[in-house]
């Protein structure tokens, strides 16, 4: 079972990422969108996400001027987001 975890708020705004990480499975994907992209700057959260398939919404990264800081992560556009929802059994928007 592959679940796409869609996280839209930063770790200091809400427990969305923390909750997703409690229930994430080995084949799942974590998608950071909106303010959640800032989690990829923080060692604590990077550590917690280590080993999981991780991607970021490109527009949210660029909008915040974080292209150079986050360049090593896979970044997707809206069409790829839609494609991801099709290759996973379900989407959970935390």
């Amino acid at each position: 079972m592959k679940i796409l975890h869609h996280i839209c708020s930063s770790p200091s705004e809400s427990n969305a990422l923390a909750c997703a990480l409690r229930f994430v499975g080995p084949k799942d994907t974590l998608l950071l969108a909106g303010n959640a992209v800032t989690a990829a700057l923080l060692p604590h959260w990077l550590n917690a996400m280590d080993g999981y398939d991780l991607c970021l919404m490109k527009a949210d990264v660029e909008a915040r001027g974080l292209m150079t800081q986050l360049t090593r992560f896979r970044q997707i556009d809206y069409a790829e987001f839609v494609a991801l929802t099709l290759t996973h059994h379900k989407v959970i928007s935390w």
């Binding site: 079972m1 679940i3 909750c19 229930f23 379900k90 959970i92 935390w94």
Partner: peptide, 17 residues
């Protein structure tokens, strides 16, 4: 426990948070 909750999340059709 979290494992049982994960199983339920897999079984259902939709999850709303």
């Amino acid at each position: 426990d979290d494992g049982q909750i994960r199983q339920l999340l897999e079984q259902v059709d939709e999850v709303l948070v």
